[in-house]
Simulated scan of single mutants.
Amino acid sequence: MPGTSPGLRLTARALLLDMDGTLVDSDAVVERVWSEWAVRHGLDPRDVLPVVHGRQGWATMAELLPDRPLAEHHADNRALLAEEAADTVGVVPIPGAARFLDAVRHVPHALVTSADTALAGARMAAAGLRVPELRITAESVGLSKPDPEGFLKAAAALGVAPADCLVFEDSAAGVEAGRAAGMRVVGVGPRAGAFAPTAHVATLEAVRVRVLADGVVRLCLTPAGE
């Protein structure tokens, strides 16, 4: 896989950060809420859980219930988002997330998440993490990952070319969205390695950040499994 040599170094002018699975471990809540949703709709949670990560809920619903009107998916998703925001039991930071966010505080960066503003705020607060000033949430886009809209909007808002951005993601939809935006992608966590990101780390503990004099960010990565 490209980018898996020890001590891999990447440079960028902006960092675009997914939330769930990348900064915040919310798998316990996601599995709880979506398992209950699956049962309510006569679906097997074992078939639902593998496809819920990374995308907006309505997009997942449209795949699982293709004959249901889109308006119903959106209404159902609004209810599910509120349910998820109210349930933060088991939400914890990904190891190294707080240190990483502190290291990039003065670097152009953005949160690019499929969560809405309320859910993003609830989960980042539950994990005790700083919320980046620039946030591209579900309300900011018309399309869900794997569409690149969110990442492209973040790059434009930061005034940085897509090729100079580095995405941090954990899901298939997120990695695909980053690549579609013309960006390099660092996969974070156990799911990400299967989706051929540019580089793959086990957690953010494996990332070291250095800001150079010209504003370029240099990242030293210890690849997963090493």
Results as ranks from 00 to 15, higher is better:
Ala126Arg: 06
Glu31Asp: 15
Ala202Phe: 03
Leu81Ser: 13
His106Arg: 04
Gly57Tyr: 02
Arg32Lys: 13
Arg218Glu: 15
Thr198Lys: 09
Leu111Thr: 04
Ala120Arg: 03
Arg184Asn: 10
Gly215Gln: 08
Leu143Gly: 12
Ala79Phe: 05
Glu31Gln: 15
Arg184Val: 05
Glu84Gly: 01
Ala71Val: 11
Gly189Met: 00
Ala161Trp: 08
Ala126Met: 05
Gly42Lys: 14
Gln56Lys: 09
Arg68Trp: 12
Pro108Leu: 04
Asn77Gly: 09
Ala192Phe: 00
Ala127Tyr: 07
Gly90Trp: 03
Ala85Phe: 00
Arg105Lys: 11
Pro69Asp: 05
Gly174Lys: 07
His74Ala: 00
Leu81Tyr: 11
Gly189Asp: 02
Asp20Phe: 00
Ala206Lys: 09
Val24Ser: 03
Gly121Asn: 14
Gly121Val: 08
Leu10Arg: 15
Glu226Ala: 11
Ala122Gly: 06
Ala138Asn: 11
Arg218Gly: 07
Ala155Asp: 12
Ala125Tyr: 01
Leu23Glu: 01
Glu169Ile: 09
Ala127Arg: 04
Arg55Leu: 01
Ala194Arg: 14
Ala98Asn: 02
Gly150Gln: 12
Val29Leu: 13
Ala206His: 14
Phe195Cys: 05
Val160Asn: 08
Ile94Phe: 08
Ala82Asn: 10
Gly150Leu: 06
Trp37Ser: 11
His74Lys: 05
Leu65Arg: 15
Phe151Pro: 06
Gly54Met: 07
Ala115Thr: 03
Pro197Lys: 10
Ala118Arg: 13
Thr222Phe: 01
Arg32Ile: 05
Val188Met: 01
Leu119Thr: 14
Arg55Ser: 09
Ala177Trp: 03
Thr113Gly: 05
Ala163Lys: 12
Val112Met: 05
His106Met: 01
Ala177Phe: 05
Phe195Asn: 06
Ala172Cys: 08
Glu176Asp: 12
Met61Leu: 14
Ser171Lys: 02
Leu43Gln: 15
Ala157His: 06
Ser26Leu: 08
Arg40Met: 12
Arg184Thr: 04
Trp58Phe: 03
His109Asn: 14
Leu101Asp: 03
Ala120Asn: 08
Phe168Asn: 10
Glu205Thr: 04
Gly159Met: 02
Val217Trp: 01
Leu221Glu: 07
Val211Asn: 01
Leu219Cys: 06
Gly150Phe: 04
Ser144Ala: 13
Asn77Arg: 13
Ala177Val: 04
Ala126His: 03
Pro95Gln: 08
Pro162Leu: 10
Asp170Met: 01
Gly193Asp: 10
Ala14Met: 07
Arg179Thr: 09
Ser144Arg: 14
Asp20His: 03
Pro66Asn: 11
Thr203Met: 04
Gly96Ala: 09
Met1Arg: 10
Pro146Met: 13
Asp18Phe: 00
Gly142Thr: 14
Ala59Trp: 12
Ala156Cys: 04
Glu169Asp: 12
Glu84Asn: 01
Val167Cys: 03
Ala202Met: 02
Phe168His: 10
Thr117Gly: 06
Pro50Phe: 00
Arg135Pro: 01
Asp76Pro: 04
Arg46Val: 15
Leu129Phe: 04
Ser114Pro: 05
Thr4Gly: 00
Pro93Trp: 04
Arg9Trp: 10
Asp47Cys: 05
Lys145Cys: 13
Arg40Glu: 15
Asp27Pro: 01
Phe195Glu: 14
Leu204Cys: 12
Ala118Val: 13
Glu139Ser: 02
Val91Phe: 07
Asp76Tyr: 03
Arg9Gly: 10
